[in-house]
Structure formats: structure tokens, C-alpha cells
Design a protein around this nucleic acid. Structure first.
Length: 558
RNA sequence: UGACCCAUGGUGUAAUCGGUAACACACCAGUUUUUGGUUCUGGCAUUCAAGGUUCGAGUCCUUGUGGGUCAACCA
């Protein structure tokens, strides 16, 4: 059977596919170009995956290049974090770690070349004057008086700029394109400015720095990037990108733009995320509620789930709002396959098995993952006094409630079948103790009792359980699009209950050996990940995502 | 009162010389299940609008409508 089932290509792959047909010798070379001025977030994940995966698909390469042309905002600390995040996501740039700052001399030479060609000039107009002369989207701009300066003078002035003979902001180098161009970015864009600041890598070697439009495309060219894949908001820059490549006569990299993704309940604006951090509304950039890679990692999202997510989101050019459910489904799917099942009781209720011998302890064998035999088994202590969930007992249980209630019978997972015979309440009427009898011949794995129990409950043995802390995380915002309403500040939608700490949680003793970052499925509850703040005395688990809960959904509907 | 980009189900994407709407998530119903998890099965849109070209249009043309982007010595 031939597998020529035409695989559908996204529009970028289509372009590459067509290029390859005309010229099979093309090596697909992409790049991921972050500015090291902050933390990577879910939006960057898409850019990373697209650049790396596209190259991989065509046997090409992807460079990591730090776009560090603004010394005021960039730090080596961010460089290290970014590299760590990309590695964690599962991508490898091998030895191709580059910096725009590596090209400062080359870029300077390009600028000199442009001046010599009569295509760039030094302008000492103020930012206000330059803005004024730009015109508007509906009216053309006017030429700056500096536009007619001679090549010689431009050369001299530009060199003086480089030599630090002029103060910050006193003049800029502009490309001479067209002040009447319909694309505002083509109206003689600034390409070099003076900044007497210490650069995180080049120190004080330079006091003039290229602007984005004179650094990005040129760096792409220098690195022989064939496809420069970026998000749609750079569309208008492409005209300049191509103009500069043409005038400089350098390697013709091609920029292709795709739509960035918007995810429900998430924001990626650095300024706004910073506010959450500064106002201590989250514990930091790696708070598990944050949309940063470090936050999602700490929350327990597996890198493979993020990659699958981006793949399922696809690549196109239209505006989109991705349902958070898609992300969570990718996370669940991955975690379902890879995590060990354990039992933990989040809201304990004491259960006494009245006919079970006092002091007796049995080790029950439990399968770690019913879908993956290779994950093995473990043993769990079973005894007379256990904890079950408060929510698993109801005094007046409806018929469809497959859990415990007076006279009801259930199986204790990996244990015995029990029937409820009695319960105790405190002075407030709250059930505090449930009494059951068990059937000795119903032990898991060797059940000869013939009793049927529809419900299955998780539990822990009180005498053996480990008390831990759980951080239950909920959405950071109360609406899908906190930024959608122009009349309202996004903080109006901040969810003040996004963190719920449970400190009366008991888990099976096997969890004592859990490692930070390790992920588990707490049966019937959800997925949890051991947090970095865990200590030997107190394990802290972060909620990653809940299990699908059709019972809760059904009840909610009523 | 400009230029550029976009418009397929609830959501995100497919439909590769125009050939009769596919996949995933979500949802609904059922199946399986010592997790109300998982599995499996079935159900769920005629493609923004109006014209036009054509035997045939989601795909081409025209005109609308709607949405997005663009004027930092930021990237």
C-alpha cells in the first residue's frame, strides 16, 4: 500500500516545497531570534517550534541568535534563562549560538556602504521633528533638511558618532528611502542611534547601536538564513528588509510571517506580566500560573505536550483565539501516558473498617500505569483506619452516586470491597467518621467474593500516610480575553482566587522518594508535579491539570 | 479618511492543475473500565455577503461587509 496520502502542508511549508522544486539544492536554514530582555512565554513557544520544526522537516538547521542591539534592556541572565528554556522544550541549536552583537563591526561596515551609495544620511533633527516630518498614514511625509547632505559629510559625521563625539540623542543615521512611501516604515527609517551605555557582551566598545531594521535582516543574511519565520506584526518591516538586502547586495534571506497565537485566559504582554510580578500577585516569573515557559515547566506541563499543542494549533495568517482546553488536552494526553498513578486524599474523612483486625497491615500491590505495563508496580500499606475524600461520602446519596453512603458498597482501589454500616457527625452536623465492614475474600487481584461494586475509591492508610501541601492553581484571569475591552484595565479581571493552598492532604508513602519536577496522577483527582519549594519535611505539589470529570460536569448541568 | 494582511462548524486548522467539505479539541449519546480517568463507536458546518466566469467555485474575478496591522533614537 503506497503511503502517498498527500500530507497537507501549511502555507510556509508550501512555499519551501515550491522553492525546493525549482532549486533542490536549497538548504533550509531558520533561526529563533529572541531579545535577551525577559523571559520566554507561550508565544515564543510557537515561534521556537515553527522555526525548529520547519528546518527539521526539510533536513535543515536552526540558529539561536540573540537580538541584542539595545544595551539598556539586555542582560546575560536572560540569555542563560532563554537557552535553558529552549533546551527544555527539546530543541538543539548545536554550535550555532549567535549574537547580533557579534556583527557590530560588520553592521557598521554595511552602514558605511549604504552611505557611500548615497542611501543613508546623518540627521540631527530631534525625535519630535523626525516624527513630524514622517507624515501620517494618510498623508505623505516631507524630506528632512539633512537629506541632501553630501556623502563625505555623512561619512565624517557617522564616524564621529561612532567615536563618541556626539551626545546621546543628538543625531541618528537614517536610510534614504522615500518620505512619501505608503508604508510608514519606508519613510527614511532610523537605522543607527547613539547610546553611551555598556552592552552586556561588547561592554563599552561601541556607543552607536543599529536599530532592529538594520540588525535583524542583516544578521539573517550574514548567517545565510534562507527562511526568516516571524509573526505577522513584522509584515510591514518586510519591505525594508528586502530593500536593505537589495541595496546592500547581500544574501537574500526571505522573511515569511505567520499569525501569532492568542490563548484564552493568557496574556503575553511583558509589561503586564511584569506588573503581576512587581505587585506580588504571583511569586515570580516562574510562578506556575504564569504563561512563561519556566512557569509552565514548574506547573508540570511536559515539553512534549507543548510541542504537540503548537503542532495542533497549526500555522496560518488569520487572527485566532485558541481554547485553553486544547492545551490542557495535550497536557493530559501526555501525562496519561507517562505518569505513575498514586493515591492522595485532598480533603480527608476518617474511615474505620470495623471488622479489620487492629494493628494488622497488609501490603497491597498497585499497578503504576494501567496503560503501560513497563512502568511496573508498587506496594501500598492497607490498615484498619484510612482516609477517604469527604466528597466520596454522602449521607443522603442519590441512586447514581457510585460512592459511599449508608448501606452503600464500594471497592477501595487496590484493596477490599467495603460496605458502609454507620457514620458519626460532629456538633455541627459534619460527617467526621465512616464505619464500614470489609469482605476478606474481596482482596484486589484475588477476589472470590462475587460481590459487585460499581464505585471505586482512592484512600490512604492513616498510620502510614504522608502529610503534604498542595497548591491548586486556577486561571489567572476571570475572562477569556482580559485585554479585549479597551475601556477596562486587565487588572479588573485578575482572579484573586487563582491560588488555593491545601495543607491537610495525605498521600501514600511511596511519594516520599519523589523528585522535584516529577509528575504524578493522583487517581481520580488530577495531575500534580513536585514543586521546587519542597523540602524533606514538607512535600509541595503543584496542580498541573485536572482529570476530565464527567460526573462533576453532569451535576453542574442539573 | 491611506497601505498592507485576513475571513471555512463552538475553537484551531485541511481540502496542492477549480470536481462536490477532512482532522483535532470541545460538545452530545453509547461502549469499555478495580480511576465517573483511559479505550472504542456514533452524532454534530455547505465555506462572511452579493454578483460574475464555469458543466462544476471554499478555491478564480468584481464589489461590499467584518476583523487585524502600520508612524518608538524598542524588538
Amino acid at each position: 500500500m503506497s503511503d502517498v496520502a498527500k500530507e497537507s502542508l501549511n502555507f510556509i511549508e508550501q512555499i519551501i516545497h515550491d522553492d525546493l522544486e525549482t532549486n533542490p539544492n536549497i538548504t533550509v536554514h531558520t533561526r529563533f531570534p529572541p531579545e535577551p530582555n525577559g523571559f520566554l512565554h507561550i508565544g515564543h513557544v510557537k515561534a521556537i517550534c515553527i522555526n525548529f520544526e520547519t528546518a527539521k522537516k526539510y533536513g535543515g538547521k536552526t540558529n539561536l541568535r540573540f537580538d541584542d542591539t539595545n544595551p539598556l534592556t539586555e542582560k546575560t541572565l536572560y540569555v542563560d534563562n532563554i537557552k535553558n528554556d529552549i533546551k527544555w522544550l527539546g530543541y538543539d541549536w548545536e554550535d550555532r549560538e549567535y549574537y547580533a552583537s557579534d556583527y557590530f563591526q560588520q553592521l557598521y561596515d554595511f552602514a558605511v556602504d549604504l552611505i557611500k551609495k548615497g542611501l543613508a544620511y546623518v540627521d540631527e533633527s530631534t525625535p519630535e521633528q523626525i516624527a513630524e516630518m514622517k507624515g501620517t498614514t494618510t498623508s505623505p511625509g516631507v524630506d528632512s533638511p539633512a537629506r541632501t547632505r553630501s556623502v563625505e559629510e555623512n561619512l565624517r559625521l557617522f564616524e564621529e558618532m561612532k567615536d563618541g563625539k556626539h551626545p546621546d540623542g543628538s543625531m541618528v543615521l537614517r536610510a534614504k528611502v522615500d518620505m512619501k512611501h505608503p508604508n510608514m516604515l519606508m519613510r527614511d527609517p532610523n537605522i543607527y542611534r547613539i547610546k553611551k551605555a555598556t552592552h552586556h557582551r561588547t561592554g563599552d566598545d561601541w556607543c552607536i547601536y543599529p536599530l532592529y531594521d538594520f540588525a535583524h535582516g542583516q544578521s539573517d543574511s550574514i548567517e545565510n538564513i534562507t527562511y526568516s519565520l516571524c509573526s505577522l506584526e513584522f509584515r510591514h518591516h518586510r519591505d525594508l528588509y528586502n530593500w536593505l538586502i537589495e541595496k546592500l547586495e547581500i544574501f537574500p534571506s526571505r522573511q515569511i510571517e505567520f499569525a501569532r497565537m492568542n490563548v484564552e485566559y493568557m496574556i503575553t504582554s511583558k509589561r503586564r506580566l511584569l506588573k503581576l510580578v512587581n505587585d506580588n500577585l504571583v511569586t515570580g516569573w516562574d510562578d506556575p500560573r504564569m504563561p512563561t515557559i519556566s512557569g509552565m515547566r514548574r506547573k508540570g506541563y511536559p515539553p512534549a505536550a507543548l510541542r504537540t499543542f503548537v503542532d495542533k494549533v497549526g500555522v496560518a495568517k488569520r487572527d485566532n483565539l485558541i481554547e485553553i482546553g486544547l492545551l490542557e488536552s495535550c497536557v493530559r494526553d501526555e501525562l496519561n501516558k507517562t505518569t505513575a498513578r498514586v493515591m492522595g486524599v485532598l480533603d480527608p474523612l476518617k474511615l474505620i473498617i470495623t471488622n479489620y483486625p487492629e494493628g494488622q497491615v497488609e501490603q497491597m500491590e498497585a499497578v503504576n500505569n494501567p496503560g503501560d505495563e513497563s512502568m511496573g508496580t508498587r506496594s501500598i500499606p492497607f490498615s484498619r483506619e484510612l482516609y477517604i475524600e469527604q466528597g466520596d461520602f454522602m449521607e443522603d446519596a442519590p441512586k447514581k452516586f457510585f460512592r459511599l453512603g449508608p448501606g452503600k458498597t464500594v471497592r477501595l482501589k487496590n484493596g477490599y470491597i467495603i460496605t458502609c454500616e454507620d457514620f458519626k457527625k460532629d456538633e455541627n452536623g459534619k460527617v467526621v467518621e465512616v464505619h464500614c465492614k470489609y469482605y476478606p475474600d474481596s482482596r484486589s487481584g484475588s477476589d472470590t467474593s462475587g460481590i459487585k461494586a460499581k464505585g471505586v475509591l482512592h484512600w490512604v492508610s492513616i498510620g502510614h500516610a504522608v502529610k503534604v501541601t498542595i497548591n491548586n492553581y486556577h486561571r489567572l484571569f476571570t475572562v477569556e480575553q482580559p485585554l479585549a475591552d479597551p475601556d477596562k484595565d486587565f487588572m479588573e479581571f485578575f482572579n484573586n482566587n487563582s491560588l488555593e493552598v491545601l495543607d491537610n492532604v495525605y498521600v501514600e508513602p511511596s511519594l516520599l522518594t519523589a523528585k522535584v519536577g516529577e509528575r504524578f496522577q493522583f487517581m481520580r483527582k488530577g495531575y500534580y508535579c513536585l514543586d521546587t519549594t519542597s523540602t524533606e519535611d514538607n512535600l509541595v505539589f503543584n496542580s498541573t491539570v485536572g482529570l476530565k470529570d464527567s460526573w462533576a460536569k453532569k451535576n453542574k448541568k442539573k
